[in-house]
Design a protein around this nucleic acid. Structure first.
Lengths: 172, 172
DNA sequence: TAACATATGTTAGCCACTAACATCGAGGAG
DNA sequence: CTCCTCGATGTTAGTGGCTAACATATGTTA
């Protein structure tokens, strides 16, 4: 992270990271499948799933998933938020990173869908789930980007709440 | 496209594409910035923007953008749909392609936001726009994926309409 | 005909990433 | 204590995406 922030993501080679970590480049690749994974670890999934599962299943899906994500963010500690902020800034600077993040987000969305899939048996239930989960995740990401752009002024959980509210207002 | 479909995206080298096109690899790179761009051309943007702009600005945002996307898809000809279907299938098979598509989608979303930004001056108007545009674009993509998974059974425009409806039903 | 612009080819090189094999250290079996 | 095994690490060589620098050709304009 230090090297990436100092020199930029693309300008930093994996060899430099390996050198700074006092290991060989091969070792880096054994622990992180790609250079992007050095930035994006994505270990929030279990918490998110737990939050979504324990919510009232009577709520509309968007509220249920969206509020879960917002609440999850609200619980992060200051240092966790700090790391998150740095990651987002990096992400905004390197297109390949942004692409990977979107893919990560998609993976988490898939996990959420899998967790809720069994709740109903309507033929289109999974389709419905995917639509709503996607809307919530992209809203969250957009809120986080706004958070980074405004230099962490507001609380991220609050921004996500607002994003979900906007979505509700603009849906006829 | 032929080589990619025959051998898979990752197994096909740019050199092979160049050879099949009877040009040098360098020429390929001069026309397509990356290997992924050989699959993802993304020239629908102008049509989408036009459709969104000419819609009733009194509609809620999600309906406005979502219906525009659905209508745009409904207007595609059979060969265009065929190409689209092949692209989506390829995309689903190669993670790096999926990542790029999500990035493309984000670029289009940015264009839509830029087109509608001037309509209002509320402080959060752009934020609101981004949230809604994202929801509509991911819903469209999810609908298209479902379309590809069911082997083009339904009409894609219709699926997108349904996706937007679901989003409305599940937003409280 | 000459000058120029544009498209293409060639070569060499960087860097992310992989495969194959060598090495080394910690822990268990005897 | 010794030997063996196994897991983590290093080394080397290579593939393939992508770029830069320079050379060549082809068509256009003066």
């Amino acid at each position: 992270m230090r090297l990436f922030l100092e020199q930029g993501f693309e300008a930093t080679t994996v060899n430099q990271v390996a050198e700074a970590a006092e290991v060989s480049a091969m070792t880096v690749y054994r622990h992180f499948p790609t250079k992007e994974h050095l930035v994006l670890s994505d270990d929030y999934d279990p918490d998110i799933l737990e939050l979504v599962r324990t919510r009232d299943s009577g709520e509309p899906l968007v509220a249920r998933i969206g509020r879960a994500l917002a609440d999850g963010l609200s619980r992060l500690s200051a240092p966790e938020l700090d790391l998150l902020l740095r990651r987002i800034r990096l992400m905004l600077s390197a297109p390949t990173l942004r692409a990977r993040l979107l893919e990560n987000q998609h993976a988490t969305q898939t996990a959420v869908v899998a967790a809720l899939r069994a709740e109903r048996t309507d033929p289109d239930w999974e389709f419905r789930l995917r639509i709503c989960a996607d809307a919530c995740f992209t809203a969250t990401t957009t809120a986080l980007i706004r958070w980074a752009e405004t230099d962490g002024a507001h609380r991220p959980g609050e921004l996500v709440h607002r994003a979900i509210d906007y979505l509700a207002e603009e849906t006829g």
